[in-house]
Design a protein around this nucleic acid. Structure first.
Length: 421
DNA sequence: TCTGGGGTCCTAGGACCC
DNA sequence: TCTGGGGTCCTAGGACCC
């Protein structure tokens, strides 16, 4: 038996923790570069602001209704998310963090009233962290997702829905549109509706073998899960990450090789740190840059991939790839709007043997150097110490994504802490 | 003027093997 | 006319997720 605990309008709720005055007020959070709405309060949804909608398209609505608008503050959201996970660990020894605002709990050892237990989770999280959540309970993860979805939609559930009873489950799934099922996106729901499968219950009753032939093995698993058969168990939960990506849209188009170098170097610094935090090494790196997808001028995009001679987590090695990549990617008189880097072929450092013909003679010194870099930046703030190719803060401000409406780092920075007078 | 970022998994098809 | 059978591995691209 699983419980899925999911934050309500998570990013907006995080902002409201420190802005209780916005409790009933239409509020949205924007994507990087202040481009799209990626979280909306119920009041903002009611105004017709869609998920992922570009801000400029709703400018009038925002002004007319005095909507509170925030730039994304992922430091804050990540910290509150960690506090929620910490709270949830007191309810089950087995918690699978699925995303920044969702966790699955294994409830197999619990034999009390699960609805009461779900309410206790909600109340504790609300009291300790300040974020409202909903809880869906069911024998499979797909059904727990469905239960959570319905708990959010129907207020009389008071935020907790237990679908362990098969009869109740049938009724609930009949109320749910097939495109709200976990794993059924735009394309699949379009095809499903063409063959008359409109609700989650229709899908649950479909023939899994037949549907596997027509679609894929994922469709089969989804159907079996909806019918109550556990296919995505906690044991099969994913292991370590397979890629590290860092990319940004630029606040202003980048046209010079020097600025593109700074941006790519900056991304490599961030990705390298993430890699080391997770104790991983990368065997391959791709760097890319491209113009705007939406501009009238012809699209230009180019990438460069380098297989590293040895798997590494050394930022300097990635910077060499940036230099080589620039030669391939850069084109004069081009308005670059986005660039990024991707590390893959990741292996765990512990399980990696160095090559017989290793060129890294000073490996332990390099490891110490990277450790030192990370410690200084952790202690004195990001960008305290970095390679020169990254440029100065002032240089970076030219292309850094816009985020003019960002709230403070209330929980992670001493100088941003709230004062109570 | 203005359109996010970071992930996972599956499949088909090509290259190559005996 | 006719052209085996059975595999593996890799990659690009699609679909999905939050």
């Amino acid at each position: 038996m699983y419980a899925l605990v999911d934050g309500n309008n998570f990013f907006v709720s995080c902002e409201r923790v420190f802005r209780p005055d916005l409790a009933q007020h239409p509020t949205i959070v924007l994507s990087n570069n202040d481009g799209c709405a990626i979280a909306r309060s119920p009041e903002a949804k009611a105004l017709g602001i869609a998920m992922g909608q570009p801000v400029y398209q709703v400018k009038d609505i925002l002004q007319q209704h005095n909507v509170a608008v925030f730039s994304a503050n992922f430091i804050l959201y990540g910290d509150l998310s960690a506090r929620i996970v910490h709270t949830l660990r007191s309810f089950s020894p087995h918690v699978h963090v699925y995303s920044i605002d969702e966790s699955f709990l294994d409830l197999s050892g619990y034999d009390g009233d699960r609805t009461v237990y779900g309410q206790a989770m909600r109340q504790k999280i609300l009291k300790w962290v300040g974020v409202p959540t909903c809880v869906g309970i069911a024998p499979t993860k797909t059904l727990a997702k469905a239960a959570n979805h319905l708990a959010k939609r129907y207020p009389h559930t008071q935020g907790v829905l237990d679908l362990s009873d098969p009869t109740r489950r049938q009724k609930a799934l009949a109320l749910m549109d097939v495109d709200d099922v976990w794993g059924i996106g735009r394309k699949l729901s379009f095809s499903l509706k063409l063959e008359g499968i409109k609700t989650a219950l229709d899908l649950a009753n479909a023939n899994p073998t037949h549907m596997r032939k027509r679609y894929s093995v994922m469709m089969e698993r989804t159907i079996r899960e909806l019918a109550g058969q556990d296919c995505f168990s906690m044991e099969s939960a994913p292991g370590s990450r397979k890629t590290v990506i860092c990319s940004r849209s630029f606040g202003e188009p980048v046209t010079s090789a020097a600025q593109l170098r700074q941006a790519l170097s900056f991304f490599v610094h961030r990705a390298g740190r993430k890699l080391r935090e997770d104790g991983l090494l990368a065997g391959c790196i791709t760097v890319y840059a491209r113009t705007s997808q939406f501009a009238k001028e012809p699209f230009y995009g180019e990438s460069y991939t380098l297989n590293l001679p040895e798997a590494t987590d050394d930022t300097a090695a990635f910077l060499q790839a940036v230099e080589a990549g620039l030669q391939h990617i850069f084109r004069p008189n081009t308005n670059f709007k986005k660039a990024g880097i991707c590390l893959f072929d990741l292996t765990e450092r512990q399980h990696t043997q160095s090559s017989l013909f290793s060129t890294a003679r000073n490996l332990s010194e390099r490891i110490n150097l990277m450790g030192c870099l990370d410690r200084l930046n952790r202690r004195y703030g990001d960008n305290t110490l970095f390679y020169g190719s990254t440029g100065t803060q002032k240089d970076r401000n030219v292309w850094m994504p816009k985020s003019t409406l960002r709230s403070a780092a209330y929980t992670t920075n001493w100088s941003d802490i709230r004062k109570v007078i």
